[in-house]
Design a protein around this nucleic acid. Structure first.
Length: 502
RNA sequence: GGGGCGGUAGCUCAGUGGUUAGAGCAGGGGACUCAUAAUCCCUUGGUCGUGGGUUCGAUCCCCACCCGCCCUACCA
């Protein structure tokens, strides 16, 4: 049994869960469910990022302590993932003791390695914002873009991580590990960032109090990088001397958005190198889900709450949509019309309807008991192709392609039924053969589609009269043609995906 | 300004240095009626962003440009 460890970014608790968070989290869930089907010992990690000035400010504004504020928001993420049927194995919060231990361990290791040194951070600072600004962010004459007033030149004593020392090592590592970033074109972006030159970055603040103290200098609080990124290590037990964190580390995939490539593919590996920790095996970089063609933002008022959508198309309808509609890596476009139309076309008309018609014909022509499939069924080849293509796609972290391949078998099965028209024949061996084949194809579809639509496939599995759950099956053996033995009572039940009238 | 990614049928996307560029959805026609007015078959539709270049030949290679988006160093 192999181990498989996948992470999502940890989400900043300054905002409530939205479509973008849900997208990445669903991709990770489907990917890890696929690995579980293969018997892997999976660790799927998500969580929340709870430190920093903005949390402090939001807490102050709410009249709460930062911890109480975080305690009020973090469960909303955990709850949202429950609603979306996310099977994360752990949920890490950066305010947890285990995370503090890991952050301090990583900091200490980098400090001991000589890669963290005291220096001076200087920049243009707006007192009203309590923020530093780069020259390009400022208006003409060094005015704050928000407050329209002059910024001050500030200097602050910071510890810096000597990222500049890592350019050659990072380039060599990536050259030695081709394909570690998928899709490939995102890997090229990361290399471009490294080749473009690396500057040291500060890892601490003295002006911040809501965070983790540096172990060797408690006047300083860790700034975001060493705090947030380290969560991936915290969950493995890193920093706890009684635990062998290498049982879980290195991670197989960090799922990230394209906007945080620099932090995850440049800063993070350099930090790990410095600390003597193995680097991740892979990164899977996703694009953004735009909403009606525009970037989702509070200012445009187009923030989509995923929980509103599951009232319309169900949990699996929503999961299927985000997985199927967008090629992971590229930007996708979310639209309500698209959601409904894909739900109707793929789930109601294809999968749901196939399950319904098969059950009806088995009931009418086979006495409600599913016949066994033929060993030499023409559908067997279509099934094998679907299994192969689906597997290849999931292995490449390409959910939309995986589902397309799986749906190919659904279409082939519908076509197969049309060709033989078993509803026109009298009960007998010919009808039994056709329906056995259809049931077997549907069983295989159920397994292949399970990572995307786990709840519905459980229901189909049960209606086919099969015991247990698709999740108990072991691929690839379970997707071999002929796994259905026949002789089970097939139940029609209510429509799995009632068609939505638009 | 610099770096990067993308621009292929109405929509979402595949794709390859070479005969007539593909899929799904949407549109049109037909068949069927087991099924959630679902399904199946056929079909309309593309100057493969623009202009050059390399080549016997480019959507795929090179250059320039246009458009969209991302990063540009401390918001995930």
């Amino acid at each position: 049994m192999s181990r498989f460890y996948v992470t999502t970014p940890i989400y900043y608790v300054n905002a409530e869960p939205h479509l973008g968070h849900a997208y990445t989290t669903i991709v990770g869930d489907a990917l890890t469910r696929w690995r579980r089907l293969h018997g892997d010992d999976v660790l799927y990690l998500t969580g929340t990022d709870e430190h920093g000035l903005k949390i402090r400010q939001s807490a102050d504004a709410a009249g709460m302590s930062p911890q109480a504020f975080c305690d009020s928001i973090a469960p909303k993420f955990a709850h949202a993932w429950e609603r979306l049927n996310i099977a994360n194995d752990d949920f890490i919060r950066t305010t947890e003791p285990r995370h503090h231990a890991a952050v301090q361990e990583l900091l200490q290791r980098c400090y001991d390695a000589g890669d963290i040194e005291l220096d001076t951070y200087s920049g243009k600072y707006c007192v009203a914002c309590e923020e530093y600004y780069s020259d390009e962010e400022l208006l003409d004459n060094d005015h704050c873009p928000i407050h329209k007033r002059p910024v001050d030149h500030f200097e602050e004593e910071n510890y810096f991580f000597r990222l500049s020392r890592f350019q050659d090592r990072l380039l060599k590592w990536y050259a030695d590990h081709p394909g570690s970033i998928v899709p490939e074109f995102r890997g090229n972006e990361a290399l471009g960032l490294i080749r473009g030159g690396l500057r040291d970055f500060s890892v601490s603040r003295t002006s911040l109090d809501w965070g983790i103290r540096l172990p060797w200098d408690d006047k300083h609080v860790a700034y975001v990088w060493f705090d947030a990124l380290t969560n991936y290590l915290s969950a493995t037990g890193f920093g706890d001397s009684s635990v062998d964190y290498t049982q879980r580390w290195p991670v197989d995939y960090h799922l990230i958005g394209k906007d945080i490539i620099r932090h995850h593919c440049v800063y993070w590996p350099a930090m790990l190198m410095s600390a003597g920790v193995d680097l991740p095996k892979g990164w899977a970089v996703g694009g953004w889900l735009l909403v009606d063609g525009e970037k989702m933002a509070k200012s445009t008022g187009n923030v989509v709450n995923p929980l509103d959508l599951i009232d319309v198309v169900g949990v699996d309808g929503f999961r299927y949509y985000v997985l199927a509609e967008t090629a992971y890596g590229s930007d996708g476009d979310f639209s309500f019309d698209g959601l409904v139309s894909r739900y109707n076309a793929d789930l109601a008309n294809n999968l749901g309807n196939l399950a319904a018609r098969v059950a009806t014909v088995v009931e009418k022509k086979c006495g409600g008991i599913g016949p066994a499939p033929r060993t030499d069924s023409p559908l067997a080849e279509a099934a094998a192709e679907a299994v192969a293509a689906t597997t290849k796609a999931w292995d490449a972290v390409a959910p939309s392609r995986a589902l397309e391949a799986t749906w190919g078998l659904i279409r082939a099965t519908n076509a197969y039924l049309e060709m033989h028209e078993p509803w026109k024949s009298e009960p007998g061996s010919d009808v039994d053969a056709v329906m056995g084949d259809a049931l077997e194809a549907l069983r295989i579809v159920t397994l292949l589609a399970h990572p995307a639509v786990p709840a519905t496939t459980e229901v189909i599995w049960m209606r086919l009269g099969l015991s247990g759950s698709p999740a108990d099956q072991r691929l690839p053996a379970a997707t071999s043609w002929g796994g259905y033995a026949g002789g089970t009572a097939v139940e029609k039940g209510d429509p799995l995906f009632p068609r939505i009238k638009s």
